[in-house]
């Protein structure tokens, strides 16, 4: 499991792991907000549930990391089910407010639970989220997301996003699909949280506030709602830009903000919003090689903007 570890300079490796964790988190939210169109402002809450659950499994039970990782995902998914079942009947702004409220509740609970250290948080979590582990999880999550998007389930979700009444008319049980989707999205957030806990080694409730949810939402929106490559790109860009801009010290966050504004001005649908990357790759291969071997697969996957 140490295939890639140590290959890069530690500074770059550390950033790469952070980027990987944000990719996972953003892909989970992309399923909820991008693919299905359900605006969730409480994604950091599921991340914190996953992080704390996995930390407790690691610290109290001393179990191997794979169990901690799964425990994080399952705990977050479980809460996703409990919260998703009633709230996903809401739409639009109402759902956003309900998820926002849930995020605050989780934070307050963590502040007041002595078993997870209250405001002092948990410390001494072992470092397990190596680059190799993170990369493997990232690849699995991307693969899962691609499979979901191309399945009947994924298309049903797209249909719900475009028009849930029409989708219902076609025989899609929208409530059931939404809850299933939400559990999957929060499960992935929990996995991301578990990786986070074993990378940062210290957990405090204040790390999982409203701003963390917005940060993740930013990645999805900037990358392109509903686009998997876009979400990955958004996470990479938004996580690495603050480091890339470090040379400008005092003006760093100013430049960061300006870049965000510029990007949204010129790409209002996100960097890769409405771009079908598989098609794009095939087309460029075609134009380079002149052959048309890529033509036979004509899967139209993407919905409109």
């Amino acid at each position: 499991m140490t295939l890639l570890n140590g290959l890069l300079p530690p500074y770059i490796e550390s950033i790469a792991i952070t980027v990987g964790i944000y990719i996972i988190m953003a892909l989970g939210l992309n399923l909820i907000t991008g693919v299905t169109g359900q605006l969730s402002l409480g994604h950091a809450a599921y991340m914190s549930i996953g992080a704390y659950a996995s930390a407790v499994v690691s610290l109290q039970l001393g179990m191997p990391f794979i169990f901690a990782l799964l425990a994080g995902g399952i705990a977050a998914g479980f809460f996703g089910l409990i919260i998703g079942y009633p709230t996903l009947r809401l739409t639009g702004d109402y759902l956003a407010i309900a998820t926002l409220g849930f995020g605050e509740i989780v934070k307050s609970l963590l502040f007041n639970m002595p078993i997870v250290g209250g405001a002092m948080g948990l410390a001494g979590i072992p470092f397990k989220s190596t680059l190799t582990v993170t990369l493997i999880v990232v690849i699995i999550v991307i693969w899962m997301m691609v499979r979901v998007e191309r399945s009947r389930f994924g298309r049903a979700l797209l249909a719900i996003r475009e028009d849930d009444i029409a989708a219902e008319c076609y025989g899609i049980n929208t409530s059931l699909y939404k809850v299933k989707m939400f559990v999957l999205g929060t499960f992935i957030a929990g996995i991301g949280g578990a990786l986070w806990a074993h990378k940062i080694m210290v957990l405090q409730p204040r790390d999982f506030g409203f701003m963390k949810s917005i940060e993740i939402l930013n990645m999805v929106v900037l990358g392109g709602l509903g686009s998997i490559p876009g979400t990955v790109l958004g996470a990479i860009v938004l996580t690495s830009i603050p480091e890339v801009l470090r040379f400008s010290s005092d003006y760093r966050m100013l430049l960061y903000g300006a870049l965000l504004v510029i990007m949204m001005r010129f790409r209002p649908n996100g960097l890769l919003g409405g771009v079908d990357v598989t098609k794009l790759v095939k087309k460029s291969i075609k134009s380079i090689t002149g052959s048309n071997f890529a033509d036979k697969e004509k899967k139209k996957v993407k919905g409109g903007n």
Binding site: A119, M120, R206
Partner: peptide, 8 residues
């Protein structure tokens, strides 16, 4: 209670 410094 939501301030680690204060709790300690």
């Amino acid at each position: 209670v939501n301030n680690d410094f204060s709790v300690g």
